[in-house]
Simulated scan of single mutants.
Amino acid sequence: MNRKIIDAHSHLWLQQDTVVDGMPVRTLANGRSLFMGEIRQMIPPFIIDGRNTAEIFLSNMDYAQVSAAVITQEFIDGMQNDYLLEVANRYPDRFFVCGLCEFRRPGYAAQARELAARGFRAIKIPAQRLLLKEGRIYLNSDEMMEMFRFMENNDMILSIDLADGDSQTGELEEVIQECPGLKIAIGHFGMVTRPNWLAQISLARYPNVRIESGGITWLFNDEFYPFPGAVKAIREAADRIGMDKLMWGSDYPRTITAITYRMSYDFILKTNELSESEKDRFLGENAASFYGFRELIELPYIKNMSE
Rank of each mutant, 00 (worst) to 15 (best):
F148P: 03
A109P: 11
V209P: 03
L269G: 10
R240I: 03
L198N: 09
S10G: 00
D244Y: 12
N272M: 06
W197E: 00
D164E: 08
L131K: 10
I5L: 04
N221Y: 11
I47L: 11
K270L: 02
G214R: 08
G242W: 02
E74F: 11
I39R: 03
A127Q: 10
A68M: 01
M23D: 03
I137K: 11
G249H: 13
T255E: 00
G37T: 10
E178Y: 06
L158V: 03
G181R: 15
F290D: 00
L274F: 09
E86A: 02
L182C: 05
E102G: 09
A88P: 05
E278T: 10
H188G: 05
I176C: 06
E86I: 08
L12N: 04
L296Y: 14
D166G: 01
G135A: 03
E86M: 07
A288V: 06
I71P: 00
L203Y: 14
K232H: 08
Q65M: 09
V70H: 02
Q111H: 07
G284E: 03
S277F: 06
K4H: 14
D161R: 11
E298R: 15
Y83C: 03
E298T: 15
M23E: 09
I302V: 15
V25P: 13
M147S: 05
F150E: 03
T27N: 06
F220Q: 01
M144E: 12
N81Q: 09
M151F: 05
N272L: 04
L130A: 04
A69G: 00
Y83P: 04
I160N: 13
L172P: 10
S67G: 06
F75Y: 14
L182E: 03
E146V: 04
Y206L: 05
D142G: 04
N304S: 15
A88N: 03
L85R: 10
P195A: 02
Y225Q: 01
I5S: 04
E143W: 11
A287I: 10
I297N: 03
Q128D: 09
A237N: 04
A288M: 09
G31A: 09
S33E: 06
V192Q: 09
D244V: 01
